[in-house]
């Protein structure tokens, strides 16, 4: 556990230092990395620890983005908007979790998929509040572009660190222990006194709060949001791919997955712009078929082979 903290602090310091000295393109990449890490880490709370295949990340992300966007346009201070966005996403997750966390497997997956679609439709049909299908402009920060990019990197970095810290604390807590039991055998967990419903709801809420804030920071960063962008199903699927890449139910797996996916995406974006979705699809297919236990399983296999020789 101590080792986890050391890695976290060193990693955060390294990203901070790199960002401070880097150019704007590099800062942009690091900001996305921190955002991806936050999303992946958050998904891991419900999908990894508790074992519930959630596709609600897009719903929380979009909800956070729109909550903060609307509030910022009302003139509220930006930090307060980000905080309220996280709160709003968490409350929403707890409420909706109460309704759908009794579902298992496919049914849970579908219910979470539909939540994002519902929210997207609600935004589309309330143009007075949210701008509807036309999208929503956010107030522009009156500071220089260079400073801005660093401010948003710092915000996302702090968020990613907090989310990872929450994961470290969770792993060695009563809640984390209970979630692992639920993941392996929910009815046996109940018989041993685990309040499964409460714990799952807590995990779902945790998987929402930081994602909501990430959506809020993203909205402020890009200045303009629209429903297909922030409720994109890819926002729900990418975290899952990152966690699968890095190793499910681990602390730093999601972050490593985020790095790998981002690197692949950049490669693809630069070289095959029109088929980037297909390229992501190919990555997913290869990952599922050949590396279902993540990249580390590959390293383990390799080292095992080397040991044999």
């Amino acid at each position: 556990m101590k080792r986890d903290w050391v890695i976290l602090v060193c990693g955060a310091a390294a990203i901070g230092a790199l960002g401070w000295s880097g150019d704007n393109y590099f800062i942009r990449l690091l900001t996305i990395l921190c955002m991806y890490a936050t999303l992946a880490q958050s998904w891991n709370f419900i999908g990894g620890f508790a074992g519930y295949p959630s596709f609600a990340t897009a719903a929380f992300f979009g909800l956070g983005a729109y909550t903060s966007g609307v509030l910022q346009n009302q003139g509220l201070p930006i930090l307060m908007c980000w905080g309220l966005a996280g709160l709003c996403a968490a409350v929403f997750a707890v409420l909706i979790g109460g309704a759908i966390l009794h579902l298992r497997g496919h049914y849970f997956a579908i219910a979470t998929l539909i939540i994002a679609e519902m929210l997207r439709e609600i935004v589309n049909t309330t143009p007075n509040l949210t701008g509807g299908g036309m999208g929503l402009n956010l107030p522009i920060l009156r500071i220089s572009v260079d400073v801005q990019s660093r401010v948003f990197l710092l915000a996302m970095l702090v968020l990613a660190v907090v989310t990872t810290a929450a994961a470290i604390l969770l792993q060695r807590s009563r809640l984390g222990f209970g979630l692992r039991c639920i993941q392996q055998n929910e009815s046996a967990a109940s018989i041993l006194g685990v309040n499964a419903y409460q714990y799952k709801t807590a995990a779902f809420g945790m998987s929402a709060v930081f994602v909501g804030m990430a959506g809020a920071i993203y909205a402020s960063w890009v200045n303009y949001i629209e429903p297909p962008d922030v409720f994109d199903i890819l926002i729900a699927v990418k975290p899952l791919v990152m966690v699968l890449l890095g190793g499910i139910g681990t602390i730093f797996g999601p972050i490593i997955g985020a790095m790998v996916l981002l690197a692949l995406e950049e490669l693809v974006w630069r070289n095959f712009l029109t088929v980037h979705a297909a390229a992501l699809g190919v990555i997913i297919i290869l990952l599922v078929l050949f590396l279902p236990n993540g990249l580390f399983s590959l390293l383990k296999d390799l080292s095992a082979k080397r040991a044999k020789q």
Binding site: R174, F177, G178, R180, C181, Q184, A188, A189, G193, V194
Partner: peptide, 20 residues
């Protein structure tokens, strides 16, 4: 019905932690 991915110690600790 043990929790297969937990150690024997962790399995028993769940009972102590959540009901014991």
């Amino acid at each position: 019905q043990p929790f297969p991915k937990m150690t024997v110690l962790e399995n028993v600790a769940t009972g102590a932690l959540f009901a014991g």
